[in-house]
Simulated scan of single mutants.
Amino acid sequence: MARRRLWWRHLLSVLLAPATMTVFIPVSIGALTGLRAPDLGSVSGALLAVVGGLAIAFGMFMLTWTVVLFDRVGEGTLAIGSPVKLVVTGPYRHVRNPMMTGVFCIQIGAALAWASPWLLAWFAVFFTAVLIAIRAVEEPHLRRRFGEQYDEYRRHVPRWIPRVSAWEPSPTSDAPVRNGGGSAAKRG
């Protein structure tokens, strides 16, 4: 029964956060601004559609990967509840916010694919809000929740620009070592 409730929490988390920011709001913006399908007949239109499609695909990949890590390693969900364990494996060994990187890629990809200044403006507003929220809410929450373990992770893994080499927690660290890495938690 507990596992069943967890899947409902995952569904709510995905619908409330990533789907709202990458699908529902952009579709609403498109409807309100008369957004039309990209012009695939021109070289620039086709190029924008391809680059945008690649950015969306990469974003979906990152978003899916990080959601799976939250479930399997962090034992938590995205926006509803926090991970039980600090997630420092996979993409979290290179950058502290790969889930948001995925969302940003989806948003920029949509703006490019549809050559929409309105979708680009939505990305800029959302990006600014996330920058503020991560510093003011998420990072203090993670520090209180995980203490020195999070501090060590934060000292070694950048917030936005990925490290080239994956961070390996030191053997004396309190950070869990799993699958050659560990886990970077996000509140949601």
Rank of each mutant, 00 (worst) to 15 (best):
A2Y: 01
R4E: 02
R5F: 09
R5S: 10
L6K: 05
L6I: 07
R9E: 10
R9Y: 02
H10A: 04
L11K: 01
V14H: 07
L16I: 09
A17P: 00
P18K: 04
V23I: 15
V23E: 05
V23R: 09
V23A: 14
F24T: 09
I25K: 00
P26I: 04
P26C: 08
P26L: 04
P26H: 08
S28F: 12
A31G: 09
T33W: 04
A37I: 00
A37Y: 07
G41P: 04
G41V: 10
S42M: 06
V43T: 13
S44D: 09
G45C: 05
G53W: 12
L54H: 04
A57Y: 01
A57R: 04
A57T: 10
A57M: 08
F58M: 12
M60H: 05
F61L: 05
F61Y: 15
W65F: 08
W65P: 00
V67N: 09
V68M: 03
F70C: 11
F70W: 03
D71C: 07
R72W: 07
V73A: 01
G74L: 06
E75S: 09
G76P: 10
G76E: 09
G76C: 08
T77W: 11
A79F: 06
G81Y: 04
G81S: 07
G81A: 05
G81Q: 05
G81R: 12
P83W: 05
V84T: 14
K85H: 15
V88G: 15
Y92H: 15
R93M: 13
H94L: 14
M99D: 02
M100L: 14
T101H: 13
G102M: 05
V103N: 13
F104G: 07
F104W: 13
C105I: 00
I108L: 15
A113V: 10
S116V: 11
P117N: 03
W118Q: 14
L120F: 15
W122D: 03
W122Y: 14
F123E: 01
V125W: 09
F126C: 08
F126T: 10
F126D: 03
T128K: 06
T128R: 10
A129E: 02
A129D: 04
A129W: 02
I134V: 15
A136Y: 05
A136K: 12
V137N: 03
L142F: 02
L142M: 14
R144Y: 04
Q149M: 12
Y150T: 00
E152L: 13
Y153G: 13
R154L: 11
R155E: 11
H156N: 15
V157G: 10
V157N: 09
P162K: 03
R163K: 13
S165Q: 13
S165L: 14
A166R: 13
P169I: 09
P169V: 06
P169S: 02
S170E: 15
T172V: 02
T172S: 11
S173N: 04
A175C: 12
A175D: 04
N179Y: 09
S183A: 14
K186A: 12
K186Q: 12
R187H: 02
G188K: 01
